[in-house]
């Protein structure tokens, strides 16, 4: 952003674009092999900040998600370098392949479609399954803790979640094919 005068012209469109596409950008970061939620948060913050600084360089708002994911690709690379010794991450080659393939999914809106269909699929789950999977993805939740709260064995909960995830995968694929 080049001046204070222009910042106010840009801030609403920027927030609107970021609000709308944040989950796609986060999915891109995760698809590049960053799995720890706090790591995704850290990268997302950097991406958001760089995107804000450069937002006046974006000509077409429709290109925001791809543009932001290109920024994310660089930030992920920096993150990988910073944490090369303390994280188990994919090889450089695999990272590049995933980052490229993932960007194509963003470009074709496939990631957004997947996320939208997933929401529908979660809502269509039986209530007990829906509550279990949502509980499992709460911040700080672990299968051990969940099993303890539910009075079940860890492996039982793990298997239930495995089945729910497979059902959700299938549901998403079917809905995408039907689109």
């Amino acid at each position: 952003m080049s001046s204070e005068a222009t910042s106010s012209d840009f801030h609403e469109p920027f927030v609107r674009a970021l609000t709308r596409h944040e989950r796609v950008i986060r999915a891109y970061i995760r698809g590049a092999g960053i799995t720890r939620p706090e790591d995704v948060d850290e990268i997302m913050q950097e991406v958001s900040l760089v995107a804000w600084r450069k937002f006046d360089q974006l000509d077409n708002a429709d290109e925001f998600p791809v543009w932001a994911c290109v920024i994310a690709r660089y930030e992920i690379l920096m993150f990988r370098r910073r944490h090369a010794r303390d994280r188990l991450v994919f090889s450089e080659k695999v990272y590049e392949l995933l980052a490229e393939q993932s960007l194509e999914e963003v470009s074709s809106s496939m990631k957004e479609k997947r996320l939208n269909q997933l929401q529908q699929c979660v809502e269509n789950l039986p209530p007990a399954s829906r509550e279990l999977v949502t509980a499992a993805y709460q911040p700080g939740s672990t299968i051990d803790k969940l099993a303890s709260q539910l009075g079940k064995k860890t492996n039982t909960v793990y298997q239930q979640l495995w089945r729910i995830r497979r059902a959700l995968e299938q549901c998403v694929e079917e809905r995408l094919e039907a689109e």
């Binding site: 989950r23 986060r26 999915a27 995760r30 698809g31 799995t35 939620p37 995704v40 999914e105 990631k111 997947r114 996320l115 997933l118 929401q119 979660v122 999977v133 949502t134 499992a136 993805y137 995830r165 959700l168 995968e169 998403v172």
Partner: peptide, 9 residues
């Protein structure tokens, strides 16, 4: 993507 979507939800 599903993981991220579930965390988001």
């Amino acid at each position: 993507t599903m993981d991220e979507g579930l965390q988001d939800l």
